[in-house]
Design a binder for these strands. Structure first.
Length: 590
DNA sequence: CAGCAGGGGGCGT
DNA sequence: CGCCCCCTGCTGA
């Protein structure tokens, strides 16, 4: 349970979400959760905290954070936001609306929805949160249904919480709790609650949009704008289709459909040689041409025989939460039977050691022909189908400072940093080619903790955590701050000295955002995605790879090498992209 | 520091 | 649907 996320405390978000997704994949196939991570945004009453048990606080966080992630496969809608703090449209009415009719089998309206905050509030208590969390909360706290049952034959254990079953499996059966992973994901009662709340949300949003046909304040709708393909004009910057699970938005339905598939568990395609699974056919081809290029590629063999077809454009319009993939069903009985664990397990078998199969070829095919350095005339490799091998040792991207050349533009960007050293220490003359090295420098030489997102230097981890929370709305699992103190701009006084600095940085970021180019937007979108949610807080330990690149297009773009601006240091090594685009077009491609 | 594979988005057909 | 491009994490030198 979520003692760590209970009233008066806030669980933290510190896990790199890329890792999280990998962890999810692992956990879904049977590993035990071992990483404590919390998901904030919902405050739960003491009743929930009394649920199972003897978990330690960090395990509560796991139970509430990772359990939701692991058991669902993905975080609840809205969680995957760069800025997790719910956005409130100042122009919107701040009103909670409940459904007209109660959910029949539950005899409750479950929750009301606030379109301004894009949050739900439990109908039976004051809990507020995103849809999935409130649905889980209500089912576990206020429903009489013990919707989650132990999957083991003959065991009558049931709980209103999936994590209760997980705990039961581990405690009473000494079984792998991952066997219950499917419970939350495939639970009909929870599905029904979710659909019910989703309908309410859609209705409220639709009504709101009808009243306010062009608000101009649709940014951030990615977390909540309807289900699946929300075509109500609530997209990011007016995009027509907005993902419910991440900030993605697009005007093209086919792109949206394709995007939706990344939030699904199934990977309908596979490499028929190594059995590795993919969610896109073109990825199979790319994989094939990288790994098995000496074998004939057969498009007709890449679709897994037992795979469900990927969502088509025709089906994607139906409201669908990304991790509640079951089709609408009859309202479930109060007690819901659960399927055996095995039935929910994908028939995935880990691919054999792919790398061992790899032909001993040198630098490979022109997998990526970056735009930055496209030659005036396409190279033979670029003009050829990807299957055409480039000559061994062929160089493509050359450094303008040395004789180095690399296989792709990204290598060039990284290499250029070794010359430009764009990560400058604000306290001395030190410059580093990589963010993590600067972080290590700052930590060891100046005994400071550097913020990954702005120039702020904290005296210690706690201060950094305060800063991240107050200035960047990023919660640290090392910082448990009473909710009431949030947003005060200087919790505990620890932040008072640097609030201005952080604010300035944010202002700079905001100013830079307007200049973001297309690629900048893409980077921003990616950065604003799940990974950013979890990735920063351990950064100050000097392990720089935990840093996520800030949306650096405008705000943190390093100055040209001779006079680097106070670039705010801790970008990853990809501080170079825009910089390079602006200043190094003379780096030619062979 | 760099090579590489994988994954995701945009775009053209 | 396929291609191109970008980005990230992993890994080894």
């Amino acid at each position: 349970m979520e003692g760590g996320a209970g009233v008066g405390s806030v669980a933290s978000l510190t896990m790199d979400c890329e890792d999280m997704f990998k962890e999810i994949t692992k956990k879904l196939y049977g590993e035990e959760t071992s990483v404590g991570v919390g998901v904030v945004g919902v405050e739960f009453p003491a009743a929930e905290r009394d649920l199972d048990d003897d978990l330690r606080p960090e395990e509560h966080i796991t139970a509430w954070g990772l359990a939701a992630l692991m058991q669902n496969g993905f975080p609840p809608p809205g969680i995957l936001q760069a800025n997790f703090t719910p956005r409130i449209d100042p122009n919107a009415e701040d009103r909670w609306t409940a459904a007209e009719e109660p959910l029949a089998w539950a005899h409750s309206r479950i929750a009301s929805y606030n379109p301004a905050q894009r949050l739900f509030k439990c109908a039976d208590c004051e809990c507020v949160g995103f849809l999935a969390r409130v649905a889980e909360h209500w089912l576990g706290t206020h429903s009489q249904a013990r919707a989650f049952q132990c999957p083991l034959a003959g065991c009558g254990f049931a709980s209103g919480w999936a994590r209760g079953v997980r705990s039961h499996l581990a405690r009473d059966h000494h079984s792998d709790p991952a066997a219950a992973d499917h419970l939350l994901r495939d639970n009909p009662a929870l599905d029904d609650l979710t659909r019910y709340l989703q309908r309410l949300k859609n209705k409220v949003e639709t009504m709101r949009n009808e009243r306010r046909p062009s608000t101009g304040s649709e940014a951030g709708a990615g977390e909540a704008a309807g289900a699946g393909a929300s075509a109500v004009g609530a997209g990011e910057a007016g995009k027509r289709y907005v993902c419910n699970a991440c900030p993605y938005a697009t005007d093209r339905r086919d792109l949206f459909t394709r995007h939706e598939n990344i939030h699904r568990d199934e990977k309908p395609f596979h490499c028929y040689l190594c059995q590795k699974q993919f969610n896109r056919a073109d990825h199979v081809k790319k994989h094939f041409l990288r790994m098995h290029r000496d074998q004939p590629y057969d498009l007709n063999r890449i679709r897994r025989s037992n795979a469900k077809p990927v969502a088509s454009a025709a089906t994607s319009a139906a409201p669908a939460l990304h991790y509640y993939t079951k089709p609408p069903a009859e309202p479930p009985p109060a007690t819901v039977a659960v399927a055996p664990a095995a039935s929910a397990q994908p028939d995935y078998r880990p691919a054999p050691a792919v790398k061992l199969e790899r032909p001993l070829l040198g630098k490979s095919e022109p997998s990526a022909v970056p735009a930055l350095h496209k030659p005036a005339a396409p190279s033979p490799a670029a003009a050829s189908p990807p299957a055409v091998r480039r000559k061994q040792g062929e160089r493509r991207y050359a450094c303008c400072y040395c004789s180095w050349s690399g296989v792709d533009n990204w290598c060039l960007k990284r290499h250029l940093n070794t010359h430009l050293k764009p990560f400058a220490c604000a306290l001395c003359e030190y410059k580093a080619a990589r963010a993590e090295r600067l972080a290590t420098h700052v930590h060891k030489v100046h005994n400071k903790k550097a913020c990954a997102k702005c120039p702020f230097l904290a005296d210690d981890q706690h201060q950094l955590a305060h800063h991240l929370r107050d200035a960047h709305h990023i919660e640290s699992r090392n910082l448990k701050v009473p909710v009431g103190m949030r947003g005060t701009g200087g919790a505990g006084g620890a932040t008072a000295g640097f609030a201005a600095s952080a604010a300035g940085a944010e202002a700079g970021a905001a100013a830079g955002a307007g200049a973001a180019s297309g690629s900048g937007r893409r980077r921003e979108t990616r950065a604003a995605g799940a990974a950013r949610l979890f990735g920063y807080l351990e950064a100050s330990d000097g392990s720089g790879d935990e840093y996520e690149a800030p949306a650096l297009a405008g705000e943190f773009a390093p100055a040209p090498a001779p006079a680097p601006a106070p670039h705010y240091t801790r970008d990853k090594e990809n501080a170079a992209p825009l910089h390079h685009a602006l200043h190094h077009d003379h780096c030619l491609r062979y």
